[in-house]
Amino acid sequence: MEAWRSKVEKLVKISPTHVTFIGFGEAAQAILSGWGRDRPASIVAFDVKTDQPASRVAKLADYHAHDVADGQTAADAVTSATMVFSVVTADQALAAAKAAVPGMRSGTIWLDCNSCAPETKRQAAQVITAAGGHYVDVAVMAPVHPKLHRVPMLLAGPDADHAAEILKALDMCPKVAGPEVGHASSIKMIRSVMIKGMEALSAECLLAARKAGVEDEVIASLNASNPEIDWRTKGAYNLERMMVHGERRAAEMREVAKTVAELGLPDRLSRETAVWQDEIAALDVDPEEDSLVDRLDRILGAM
């Protein structure tokens, strides 16, 4: 009984009571949904879409649906926060940190969960630490659905171990990658060369095959060469990722290209992957059914 009480007291001590989400899209909402009734006592959110007339009403509805307070501005949202999840698009990560620090109190833990180049994370870390905050480089290593708050996360930075304990108390799945900011990001960025690159290759290969009328033969050949992969299913999934999330994935791939270039290597494949991701997303085509051919035809019809 004493051991159990000690464990509970420890968890209560390290669990944050005031959490802020900067950015309130799919990732933030998935984490909140996963926590359910075990969520921290106070949740505040701020998303730049509330500043845009075209998206303000819908974003305020998201806040209401998840029972979170509207932070008005990034600085206002973090005023009472003990922990902040920054979950914006990759190109806005540094700007989000700069916008929040005027309202951030000393000691706040800033979890930078954005898919950014290591150098971008290091710049954000300087902004947060200069304001007295504790910056943690976080790499989200899988889609947030269906895992929700249990999605695997890599943490890096001087405060990564402490942050990991807090996240574990929230029933999350952190793993410490190292003590240097940028280490977790490097793993995520370099992995994305392959993951998002395969999506772009799938689009180029299968769209060309469908337009030439040889998709069945091409898929049969791919299945013969790689029997561990069902290319028809995998191709449909890759297209869905690009159709629904291509804009965000393109932003990430531009950070990936930056990462590769900073290592002194050619970044042309990563740059072109970003182009494909952007182009598919810009078509604004609904994936609808799981059929690969249906998705190919819908994309080709919109191109």
Results as ranks from 00 to 15, higher is better:
M1F: 11
V12W: 11
I14G: 08
T20A: 11
F24C: 10
F24L: 10
A27F: 09
A30M: 09
A30N: 09
I31N: 06
W35F: 10
R37Q: 14
R39N: 07
P40F: 03
A41V: 09
V44T: 14
A45T: 13
S55G: 10
D62K: 10
H66V: 07
D67S: 12
Q72Y: 04
T79H: 12
T82L: 02
T82A: 05
M83A: 06
A90H: 04
Q92F: 08
A100P: 06
P102A: 08
M104A: 09
R105D: 13
R105G: 14
I109Y: 10
C113H: 04
N114I: 03
S115N: 11
A117Q: 05
A117W: 10
P118L: 07
E119G: 08
T120H: 00
K121E: 03
Q123W: 00
Q123R: 08
Q126S: 15
A130R: 08
G132L: 12
G132D: 07
H134D: 13
V136I: 13
V136M: 03
V138S: 05
V140A: 07
M141D: 06
A142H: 13
V151C: 09
M153C: 13
L154W: 04
L154Q: 05
A156S: 15
G157N: 07
D159H: 15
H162Y: 14
A164L: 11
I166H: 06
P174F: 06
G178R: 01
G178E: 06
A184K: 01
M189V: 01
V193F: 07
K196F: 04
G197W: 02
E199K: 02
E199V: 00
L201Y: 02
S202H: 00
S202K: 03
C205W: 04
A208E: 01
K211F: 08
V214I: 14
E215N: 07
D216N: 12
I219K: 03
N223W: 04
A224L: 12
S225K: 08
S225R: 09
N226W: 11
P227C: 02
D230P: 05
W231H: 11
W231L: 03
T233V: 10
G235C: 00
A236K: 00
M242D: 01
E247A: 12
R248S: 00
K258C: 04
A261V: 03
L263E: 02
G264A: 01
P266E: 05
D267A: 15
E272L: 14
W276S: 14
I280K: 00
I280F: 01
A282R: 12
L283S: 14
L283V: 06
V285E: 12
D286E: 15
S291C: 12
D294H: 13
R298V: 04
L300I: 15
G301N: 06
M303Y: 14
